[in-house]
Design a protein around this nucleic acid. Structure first.
Lengths: 198, 198
DNA sequence: GTCTATAAACCGATAGAC
DNA sequence: GTCTATCGGTTTATAGAC
């Protein structure tokens, strides 16, 4: 197999995806036209369709999947240390990672909105969220094992119970970060940590 | 002033807005065409543009504003009783109202996503959220006044601190209700109530 | 105010040369 | 693989009769 050609191909794909992410972030998925992605990438119609025959939708799915799964890697890395992070710390790790990455949270709002309408996108969200959910659950369980006073009916049950709340707090963070003027991320995280067990 | 004409005008507007809400709920804001709203209302292009010159966007803003402000009325009504509701109960009242109203939470995801892009819609969301936030804050304060053990630095500060968390839990509810298969609303509310002070 | 008909713009995707 | 040029299908909004 031609290694160079393959590497070039991958590099080109990454380049296109990066341009697509910039375009989607700026104008939102729906309002971004292929012309916008073309302009952002400096390439032309044919060049892009040669790599992403699925067009706009495939670009969005690819961009979003990458973004969601990167959260997962961070969480796995952070929670495999000796001292398992508390629920509040888990939230901080994941949300902090999003911001450090320079990801505009609003792209997530757009993804959720699209998933509401397009079955193909919903499917991808289900898949990615499933992975993330599993990581959260595992991280929570590890903490509850060491703090049984918060898990009277066992770490699995306690983790399962609090999981939607933790996810909900993360989702609320994205919404408020995107929509509220002067949103105070630190205050939000402090308040969330205060209500979560620790 | 011609009272009858005015009443008719208002009735017609309500009729159009109801049709628009049905159409937006079914297909989402972006994918709903004016043709869809026309079909749903049984009226014609001219009829609608005579009442809503701003077109699709104006319809969406009007529909969303009404919906958001109704939440506020419910909360005001519920929290003016003798026994102020706890944070968990406040969440239950508002989220229960949304579902009882037959509102599809996904329309809210679409609203947030649009607000991310369209300044006019963002402005409306700011305004409506401001009203709702004020109600939440007032309701929380009333409860903290009666439970000073949770408000060491005064009810105002405690209310202000927990407000974003409560809103975040509500927003997370909408996201999960819209996107997760088999989402268990009761379990979510129970878990949220368990972490909130009561 | 409301209807029918239509214009003007735009978009995603393809065809074919190089 | 990439470029230029363009087609077919939609969409919003308007024009003009009633």
């Amino acid at each position: 197999m031609p290694k160079v050609s393959d590497a070039h191909r991958r590099a080109r794909r990454e380049e296109i995806l990066a341009a697509a992410l910039r375009a989607f972030t700026a104008k939102g998925y729906q309002r971004t036209s292929m012309a916008d992605v073309l302009a952002e990438s400096g390439l032309s119609t044919g060049a892009i369709y040669a790599h992403f025959a699925g067009g706009k939708r495939e670009l969005f799915v690819a961009v979003a999947r990458t973004t969601l799964l990167r959260r997962n890697e961070e969480l796995v890395a952070a929670s495999s240390g000796v001292e398992p992070p508390s629920p509040g710390e888990i939230l901080r790790i994941v949300l902090g990672g999003v911001l450090r990455d320079g990801i505009e949270p609003r792209i997530l709002l757009q993804l959720w909105s699209e998933a509401t309408i397009e079955p193909e996108i919903l499917e991808m969200v289900h898949e990615a969220i499933g992975v993330v959910r599993t990581s959260f659950r595992a991280a929570l369980e590890r903490w509850f094992v060491q703090h049984p006073e918060y898990a009277p009916d066992g770490p699995e049950a306690a983790a399962e119970r609090i999981l939607p709340v933790l996810l909900g707090l993360g989702q609320g963070f994205m919404v408020q970060h995107s929509l509220f003027d002067g949103f105070d991320a630190e205050a939000y995280l402090d308040a969330a940590t205060a209500v979560l067990p620790s």
